[in-house]
């Protein structure tokens, strides 16, 4: 922000001569009211977009056909109530959830967490206070650091309490990445990129990282009795 003064303050007791006005100058314009740049280049949909769509479709089909030619969909023996496989695994996209189920009590892992995630995802557009997405360390870095670190620390302890190392450790990693711009003042591309990420983006990154990790663990690292195995 520039420190250059754009206006002067007149002070007088005579209100008629110098009428007092209150001017509220927002620091930034909300995105909602930002006009689309009028000078952006427009092209005809046909053929510019249509051709891209067709190519995209063709590529999708080609890739699918090739995968289908070389990899067969799994088919095991007929379902048998008596024969419980160990472990019984959900489809891969629910394995993260199953991993959570192993860590937390079922009501928490099976109902509460998915519900919270869903709600969190839904409310993102309505609760995004930091609409401009300024980086995490832009304002009051010290205060941010204390609050951020202590809340992560509490969360970390909670996870350790539940023996949820598969969540605690990735959380720690993300935390280290998130606070690195606070400590490392050196300018480089990587640090700059990290410094630009807002809190919301950090949370999302953490969420994606943890869920992908849990899915990978559930898929490849869990054997009989949901014990840790190497693939």
């Amino acid at each position: 922000m520039t420190n250059e003064k754009q206006f002067e303050i007149e002070i007088s007791t005579d209100s008629k001569e110098v009428p007092q006005r209150l001017a509220i100058i927002p620091e930034r314009t909300p995105v909602k009211y930002e006009l689309e740049k009028p000078d952006e280049k427009l092209v005809m949909t046909f053929p510019n977009l249509i051709i891209r769509e067709v190519i995209c479709f063709q590529l999708v089909v080609i890739v699918l056909a090739l995968i289908s030619l070389f990899f067969d969909a799994p088919l095991e023996e007929l379902a048998n109530l008596q024969n419980t496989p160990n472990p019984a695994k959900a489809p891969w996209y629910f394995l993260g959830l199953q991993e959570l189920l192993h860590i937390f009590p079922p009501v928490v892992a099976g109902v509460l967490i998915p519900l919270l995630v869903l709600i969190a995802l839904i409310v993102i557009p309505y609760f995004d206070i930091n609409i401009k997405r300024s980086g995490l360390w832009n304002d009051q870095p010290k205060k941010t650091f204390v609050i951020f670190s202590s809340s992560i620390f509490l969360f970390f302890l909670l996870m350790i309490f539940f023996d949820a190392f598969s969540i605690a450790i990735p959380t720690l990693l993300i935390y280290i990445l998130a606070v690195s711009p606070y400590f490392i003042k050196k300018e480089n591309v990587f640090i700059n990129a990290l410094a630009h990420l807002s809190l919301a983006e950090w949370i999302m990154t953490w969420f994606v990282f943890v869920s992908v990790l849990l899915i990978i663990i559930g898929t490849y690292f869990r054997g009989p009795g949901w014990n840790w195995v190497w693939p």
């Binding site: 891209r52 063709q58 590529l59």
Partner: peptide, 10 residues
């Protein structure tokens, strides 16, 4: 270029 790509992909 897209047209050429389109031909090849087709």
């Amino acid at each position: 270029g897209l047209k050429k790509l389109y031909a090849a992909v087709s």
